Amino acid sequence: MALLARADKGTSQRSGAIDFIRVLGIVAVVAGHVWSSDLVRNLLYTWHVPLFFFLSGYFWRLGRTAKDEVVKRGRTLGLPYAAWFAIIGIPYVIELLVSGNFGLGSFLRPLYGGSVAGRPFTTFWFVSVLFFTAILYRAVTKLPIAIQAVVAAVGLGAGYLVGDVLAKTPLAIGSALPCLSFMLIGTVASRLHPRLRWRPLLGLGLLSGGFALVWGGISTPLDMKGGDFGTPFVSMIVACAISFGLVLLAGFAFQSVPLAVSRLFTRLAASGFAAVLAHPAILWLLQTPADGTWIEFWIALVIPWAVGLIALQTPLSVWLTGQDRAIRQ
């Protein structure tokens, strides 16, 4: 999957530090769907979804055509989307029939996607938006950087003005416009990274400064599924600052981490797409309320992730994780 893979050439090209951040982001996404308190929103919602758009831009590869991008994203995002939609859709339809709630609306909402699709399809909007944002960004990157910035700023402005409308478009395709900004800033950050000095201190400063703005109420949390991008422009900058801070700190910390630990996080990140897409179905089956329990959190986190880890060793890997089958070494 694009959001879980650093490069196209397999795990040998992956970074344990970046994979650790991806794992952290996935855990944060699950936690955000188990608990809905203001504390959780302030801690997680500012960065946990923007992180993946930022990283997609951070590891953006130039030279692909639009067709190449569609094919790649279709394989890494589209195949797991279709597979998990079918897997989750079976018990969903059965439940509708048994409960007597089967109707045209309840059947079409998951197919329509976007902000109208709730449990057990809560996270499918994210996959479709990432797909369309990547395709749009591929087209935009052919323009001069100044024009790219203008396009991204206009898109983000549209997110603040009519974000809820964009989120209600089919598959939330409209939300690709404001999400361009996260990818663009991720790309810019990757180009700046080699020139930076005192990276751990800078990373700590970005994290502490970002969270200070959140806790101070200057930067409000984002709810991108609903088209809420927080405080105009400030929340986007804070989200990217926290994301970049995590990259800088993890890169420094993993310099002394054993290779076995790095490989563990790489395997977890490679299989994590299953947890992203399937954990809302677990919460749906458990009938978890708006504020769940730690037990429900661990069940929703571990079961689909375990399925992903197992699938990673089988021909089903690309369908359930977006990754090619892992080869044991």
Rank of each mutant, 00 (worst) to 15 (best):
V40M: 07
R41I: 02
Y45A: 03
Y45S: 11
T46V: 15
T46E: 13
H48D: 06
V49L: 15
P50K: 03
L51E: 08
F53C: 06
F53Y: 13
F54A: 07
F54D: 02
F54V: 06
L55I: 12
G57Q: 02
F59T: 06
F59V: 07
W60G: 00
W60P: 02
R61F: 13
G63H: 04
G63C: 02
A66Q: 15
K67Q: 15
K67T: 11
K67M: 12
E69Y: 08
E69L: 10
V71C: 05
V71F: 09
K72A: 12
R75E: 15
G78M: 03
L79E: 09
P80N: 11
Y81C: 04
A82W: 12
W84E: 00
F85L: 14
A86K: 13
A86L: 15
A86H: 13
I87C: 10
I88D: 07
G89N: 09
I90L: 13
P91R: 03
P91L: 12
P91N: 04
Y92D: 01
E95A: 15
L97E: 14
L97G: 14
S99C: 12
S99I: 02
G100A: 02
N101I: 07
N101A: 08
F102T: 06
G103S: 10
L104Y: 15
L104R: 14
S106L: 13
S106Y: 09
S106C: 13
F107K: 00
F107C: 09
P110Q: 04
L111S: 13
L111Y: 12
G114D: 09
S115R: 10
A117H: 01
A117D: 03
A117C: 07
A117G: 09
G118C: 04
R119C: 02
P120A: 10
F121T: 02
F121P: 02
T122D: 14
T123E: 08
T123H: 03
T123W: 05
T123F: 08
F124M: 07
W125N: 03
W125V: 01
V129C: 07
L130N: 06
L130A: 14
L130K: 08
L130P: 06
F131T: 02
F132Y: 14
A134Q: 10
A134R: 00
A134K: 05
A134S: 15
I135K: 04
Y137G: 00
V140R: 06
V140G: 12
T141E: 03
K142F: 03
I145H: 04
A146Y: 08
I147C: 01
I147T: 15
A149S: 09
V151A: 04
A153C: 05
V154N: 02
G155Q: 09
L156W: 01
G157P: 04
A158N: 09
A158L: 15
G159Q: 00
G159W: 01
L161A: 14
L161R: 08
D164C: 06
D164M: 05
L166G: 01
A167N: 06
A167Q: 01
A167F: 05
